[in-house]
């Protein structure tokens, strides 16, 4: 039986529910990547590499930024999905952002985001679960911060956000403040 994603809504965007899923032991990352590159519409999700993610709120910060840009009509990429991946980055280099934060050929875990609203695709969590089951070959894991934490590579996060060695990232909450700040300020500093 396919597992159901976690559904969350950002308080400021109540009519844009998000369906979030986490997979480990993924074996078909290269396929997913090539389908994304070929523009297969069945793959309209944001696929993120969990080793680059500190916490759920870290992803929500990127989603929030993407939804804000979409609302203002100022997205830098073609879809809200790629905009979410791009929004994870602290810099304006889109190609680099997709490479760093998106699915990689060698990825063995995936964090998947679906924006389920009128502008995209009004779809329920269960449907998303079913659809993803046929897309991702891997093991679905119940999404929570503890599960995510096990997958984070803290040194990758440090490198991605250029956080000096002097700043300790053991405290996940303090670390999340630093990265969400960088996400909000992307392109402005």
């Amino acid at each position: 039986m396919p597992s159901t994603p976690l559904t969350l809504t950002l308080p400021q965007f109540p009519s844009s529910p998000l369906h979030l899923s986490l997979y480990t032991n993924v074996t078909n990352a290269p396929t997913i990547r090539s389908q994304l590159l070929s523009g297969n519409t069945a793959y309209s999700y944001a696929f993120l590499d969990p080793s680059t993610i500190l916490s759920i709120s870290h992803v929500l910060a990127a989603v929030y930024r993407a939804l804000t840009e979409r609302e203002a009509g100022t997205m830098r990429t073609r879809t809200v999905n790629s905009e979410i991946v791009f929004s994870m980055a602290p810099s304006m280099n889109i190609g680099d952002a997709l490479k760093r934060f998106g699915v990689k050929d060698e990825s063995t875990a995936l964090f998947v985001v679906k924006v389920a609203d009128e502008a995209e695709d009004v779809v329920g969590a269960e449907e998303v679960g079913v659809a993803l089951e046929s897309i991702v070959e891997g093991e679905s894991v119940a999404l929570c911060d503890d599960a995510l934490q096990a997958l984070t590579d803290i040194e990758v996060v440090r490198k991605n956000y250029k956080i000096p060695q002097g700043v300790v990232l053991n405290d996940r909450i303090a670390a999340a403040q630093i990265v969400t700040g960088a996400i909000a300020l992307r392109g402005y500093s």
Partner: peptide, 11 residues
């Protein structure tokens, strides 16, 4: 942008 949810503990 962060809702209250039991899954979110590191925020």
């Amino acid at each position: 942008f962060i809702p209250t949810h039991e899954a979110i503990t590191n925020s």
